[in-house]
Design a binder for these strands. Structure first.
Length: 233
DNA sequence: GCATTAACCACAG
DNA sequence: CTGTGGTTAATGC
């Protein structure tokens, strides 16, 4: 029984093929510590990983799948980011506050590892490479967010929509053809508009041959025009 | 004034 | 969940 538990531990974090860039810098002792202080939980599409307003007890690591980060606004939900793996979720809200300031919801079936806050804090104190990788990620994300939020607040609707489509194509899927990970209502929560406007505008983009949509699959046909629309605002 | 943009409502597949 | 039409308010020439 003891042996069994030990073997299980062995097959967890140390041999994990989906480590974060930061976790790749952990020593084998640290990985062993990680194994005893984390639990992988799989979520189905639509399930909530952690919820705004509840106690933040763990860091969550997105091992595979897509997750939306969103928070309640005065009027409606606001999607802040869509995260792909590998990525830690909720570092700011878990380290910075006791209570989650935003929610994370699975957009696809996902594998999530819950890691105890103390363990992660310990790594940060003791392993500079690990800490640096995490800071790097936080910095990159902050810059991207600032960029996106200034764009979102100053561009007209067509520019915002073009932006988000290009962003998904370039940063999320690395392809001109992808399955929309969110419905039109969520899309409107992302670019601060109404569901109807998203519907109308995507329809127009299709009519003009800039994109094509069947079912949920979206193809960007004329990226150059989309870029122009994005720039023009 | 007149045009444009886009939200809100209603209702239908 | 999505598509459309009507209405309305704000903003810009």
């Amino acid at each position: 029984m003891l042996l069994n538990a030990f073997e299980m531990a062995n097959t967890e974090c140390r041999l994990c093929g989906l480590k974060s860039p930061a976790a790749q810098l952990l020593t084998s002792q640290e990985l062993e510590a990680l194994e005893f202080n984390c639990a992988q939980i799989n979520f189905k599409k639509g399930e909530i990983v952690f919820r705004e307003g509840t106690f933040a007890t763990n860091i969550t690591y997105l091992k595979s799948g897509l997750v939306k980060i969103h928070m309640k606004g005065p009027a409606r939900d606001k999607i802040l980011r869509i995260m792909k793996s590998p990525s830690y979720l909720g570092l700011p809200t878990t380290f910075g506050e006791k209570v989650n300031h935003y929610s994370a919801t699975a957009l696809t079936d996902t594998q999530i590892c819950f890691i105890s806050l103390d363990t992660l804090r310990d790594f940060i104190f003791k392993n500079g490479g690990f800490a640096y990788e995490n800071i790097l990620e936080l910095c990159r994300n902050e810059l991207k967010d600032y960029q996106r939020y200034t764009n979102m607040s100053q561009k007209l609707l067509p520019g915002r929509l073009a932006d988000i489509l290009l962003c998904m194509s370039h940063e999320l899927f690395n392809s001109n053809k992808f399955e929309l990970p969110i419905n039109y209502n969520e899309l409107s929560d992302f670019i601060s508009t109404s569901r109807e406007s998203v519907s109308r505008l995507l329809g127009e983009f299709c009519k003009e041959g800039i994109i094509s949509i069947n079912k949920k699959e979206l193809t960007i046909l004329k990226e150059d025009i989309l870029e122009k629309i994005s720039l023009k605002g």
